[in-house]
């Protein structure tokens, strides 16, 4: 099962490498990882999507928490939360039918065309992983995918819950 972890840590040189190193050292999976400084520049916020059974996730949380740089860790997937991923898809549509299909599908998925040349369309889409996958399956039928870039998910708890120092 996919688990989303949110981590608040010191924004110090090497602190990201400690997180990544820990995951590889202990054979934990990283499906995606996003990181950026918070409004308080001395802190970074990481969202990691990982997977494993209950025991594995418990170990991951404890091991991450043990890192001296880490202030807080929270498992968001177990709570009410919002998650989003951003994706750019560059598509090659040879026929006008195909091009219309891209415009239509993008509209249905509430995406935007952010760049286009004669035949090349770049679509921007955000949402949950499943929605992005569904979009790819749809457009693949009539157009060639030139490249895809995905941000990995970011997530936040609903309501008053917040990851604070």
């Amino acid at each position: 099962m996919q688990t989303i972890l949110s981590i608040l840590l010191e924004n110090e040189p090497g602190s990201l490498s400690r997180i990544i190193g820990l995951f590889s050292q202990r054979a934990f999976n990283i499906e995606s990882l996003t990181v950026a400084a918070t409004e308080d520049k001395s802190l970074s916020r990481i969202t990691i999507a990982t997977n494993g059974d209950h025991e594995k996730i418990e170990q991951i949380i404890k091991q991450v928490n043990k890192l001296v740089d880490v202030l807080r860790i929270s498992e968001l997937s177990g709570k009410a939360h919002i998650e989003r991923e951003l994706m750019f898809v560059k598509l090659n549509a040879q026929t006008s039918d195909a091009r219309e299909e891209i415009v239509r599908t993008t509209d249905i998925f509430r995406g935007q065309i952010v760049d286009c040349t004669n035949q090349l369309y770049t679509v921007q889409l955000s949402g949950k992983k499943e929605k992005l996958n569904a979009f790819i399956r749809s457009v693949k039928r009539q157009s060639d995918i030139i490249e895809i870039v995905r941000s990995g998910c970011v997530a936040i708890a609903r309501g008053a819950t917040a990851l604070k120092p």
Binding site: E58, Q59, Q63, N65, K66
Partner: peptide, 11 residues
């Protein structure tokens, strides 16, 4: 004293 040691190998 280290929570990560607890239930790591044996529940």
């Amino acid at each position: 004293i280290d929570p990560s040691t607890i239930s790591k190998n044996i529940r």
